[in-house]
């Protein structure tokens, strides 16, 4: 059972802007009756907002009759879910073995140096968040990179720069 104080809390969720709150409720409503609804809801929230705001946790917990700790525990367990906003674009570089065998280590160093960030960080202009990923299923065309869900193969430091520049300029 959720704590008794919870229904009152959701009436005025301090941290969530009205739009974000609506997005969270829209993510919850069509999915709350699904068996094992939590992951589908978290995906929908992250798809809508780019992350799962901490203040969304009580709303989700309440809808699914879970404790906040349960929901928070799930959000924090999975690498894919983020609790903080990220850059406008997400660049994932594959760190796994096949890509290593084809130069991913050098690509990773190049990316960090040119973007001026480490893993999980966002460039100062807010454009790009850099994330490691362990295999994109594109191992026959290693090294592989995914940018905003689009896959790229045989990525070299040069083609990486071109891809990032195109992403930044919205191309």
């Amino acid at each position: 059972m959720p704590p008794a104080t919870q229904p009152a809390m959701i009436l005025k969720e301090p941290g969530l802007a009205p739009d974000a709150r609506r997005a969270v409720l829209d993510a919850i409503e069509p999915r709350r009756a699904l068996p094992g609804a939590l992951l589908p809801i978290l995906h929908a929230v992250q798809d809508a907002l780019g992350y799962v705001p901490r203040d969304a946790v009580p709303l989700i917990a309440n809808a699914l009759n879970l404790s906040r700790a349960d929901v928070h525990g799930v959000v924090s367990f999975y690498h894919y879910f983020r609790s903080e906003p990220c850059g406008r674009h997400i660049v994932q570089i594959c760190r796994a073995e096949s890509c290593q065998a084809m130069g991913a280590v050098a690509l990773e160093a190049h990316a960090k140096a040119t973007l001026g960030v480490d893993w999980h960080e966002t460039t100062r202009d807010g454009a790009v968040t850099l994330e490691p990923v362990y295999c994109l299923g594109n191992c026959a065309l290693s090294p592989a990179v995914m940018i905003d869900g689009d896959l790229h193969g045989r990525v070299t430091p040069q083609s990486f720069d071109t891809l990032v520049a195109a992403t930044r300029s919205g191309a």
């Binding site: 068996p35 992951l39 589908p40 978290l42 995906h43 799930v74 690498h79 894919y80 990923v133």
Partner: peptide, 25 residues
């Protein structure tokens, strides 16, 4: 069809079932 969330361990069958049920894997 259900989407995972970036956890290698969720390939292990019982962890996968936990994840499908909406829990930590």
């Amino acid at each position: 069809a259900r989407l995972g969330a970036g956890a290698y361990i969720c390939g292990e069958e019982t962890s996968l079932l936990e994840s499908l049920e909406g829990r930590r894997g």
